[in-house]
Design a protein around this nucleic acid. Structure first.
Length: 354
DNA sequence: AGGCGTTTTGCCAATCAATA
DNA sequence: TATTGATTGGCAAAACGCCT
């Protein structure tokens, strides 16, 4: 069980990352991960990641110590090729990435490395508890109540926060929430980032052995313990169904081992397209789950309830795009037919469907 | 617009902790 | 105890916002 009585430290979060200006979201983080991993398609040395970032004057502490997953063994310190890295390396920067990265930050499970202090395993518990204890519980998901002053009041009123100042951390965190899109994280609908977030959380809980076995119930219990639903915008019937289906898929592709399996499949020639592909659950047509090349070919669970998308179809399947196009189509129909201000909403819906 | 007080941002120095 | 490396906070410049 997570220990929420642990002290909170700002870590290097009072150091500034340099997110860039005007609506670029977390593009700099996306870029940093690509720079750090280079051509690698598997775990890399923390020192290599660091060297590559510092060679380009990119702050190393924020990506490595707050967003990515670290572990060490006899051979040294490593950074995992997990779902967040997969999404950064194989897909261009998008809002899907920003939401996923913000989720990774809030989940705050980054493993450890040689010389790390104990509290650094959960480097942003202050954000994790702000989301769960303040936004979800006290504010009942009213995102409009989130601002630097509210974050600061939360920190100042909590004995677990151990630092001399709180203003800078509060303004920095509020800034991250704004550019990462916290307002869209709080959503009832199932989006692509949410599906990726379930894989990301599963990756980390498996790696940390909080999920002791690679099966749906063990991972599901670990996700509950670490409040996956609360950190990803709340629970509903559709999300519960989707999570179960996603975990079945996750287990079938080998869990954290899916990336190694993909590399093997490509190297051995068992798959000829090295690009990721997608699966769409026909009951959840809003969002496909992207998977690394070659990991599902032999799976017998892939039955008629899933649609397979090749890489190009996966790229084209963008919910935002779909919605935008649908709105444009509906608008032109409205103009054609001459909309009246007295129309009821059901009339409007009928028009949009037509 | 221009002046003025306030807040934010980013740089980096002081401090702190780990290791040799 | 010295050295190295990471964390935290101080500070000043820049940006913001609120008046005339």
């Amino acid at each position: 069980m997570p220990d929420y009585s642990e002290d909170w430290h700002p870590g290097s979060f009072t150091k500034n990352f340099g997110w860039g200006k005007d609506g670029r979201g977390l593009a700099e983080l996306h870029h940093a991960i690509r720079v750090g991993f280079g051509e690698a398609k598997g775990d890399i040395r923390r020192s290599d990641f660091r060297q590559r970032l510092e060679a380009q004057d990119i702050n190393f502490y924020i990506p490595a110590n707050f967003f990515l997953f670290n572990y060490s063994n006899e051979a040294g310190d490593w950074i995992c090729f997990d779902e967040l890295v997969f999404q950064a390396v194989f897909f261009g920067h998008s809002e899907h990435f920003d939401r996923l990265a913000l989720f990774a930050f809030n989940l705050s499970l980054v493993g450890s490395w040689q010389g790390a202090r104990h509290f650094q395993r959960r480097p942003a518990l202050w954000s994790n508890r702000y989301i769960v204890e303040r936004l979800a519980q006290a504010h009942r998901w009213d995102v409009s109540k989130v601002n630097a002053d509210d974050i600061q009041a939360f920190l100042d009123g909590d004995g677990r926060y151990k630092a001399k100042t709180s203003r800078k951390l509060s303004t920095n965190l509020n800034f991250l929430y704004q550019i990462g899109g916290l307002d869209s994280v709080v959503a009832d609908t199932i989006e692509r980032w949410w599906m990726n977030a379930s894989f990301l959380a599963a990756d980390r809980l498996c790696r940390l052995q909080y999920a002791r076995r690679l099966n749906v119930s063990a991972i599901g219990e670990a996700l509950d313990e670490f409040e996956f639903s609360l950190l990803s915008g709340g629970k509903n019937v559709e999300k519960s169904y989707a999570l179960k289906r996603l975990l079945e898929m996750y287990v079938s592709v080998g869990g954290p081992a899916r990336f190694e399996r993909s590399v093997e499949a490509i190297n051995s020639g068992r798959t000829n397209d090295p690009r990721p592909y997608g699966l769409v659950d026909k009951k959840l047509p809003r969002a496909p789950k992207s998977l690394p090349a070659g990991v599902v070919n032999t799976m017998d669970w892939l039955d008629a309830s899933y649609e397979v998308l090749n890489h190009d179809e996966l790229k084209a399947f963008d919910v935002d795009m779909f919605v935008r196009e649908a709105s444009v189509r509906a608008l032109s129909k409205i103009r054609e037919r001459g909309i009246k201000p007295t129309m009821s909403s059901s009339d409007l819906m009928a028009l949009m469907r037509g």
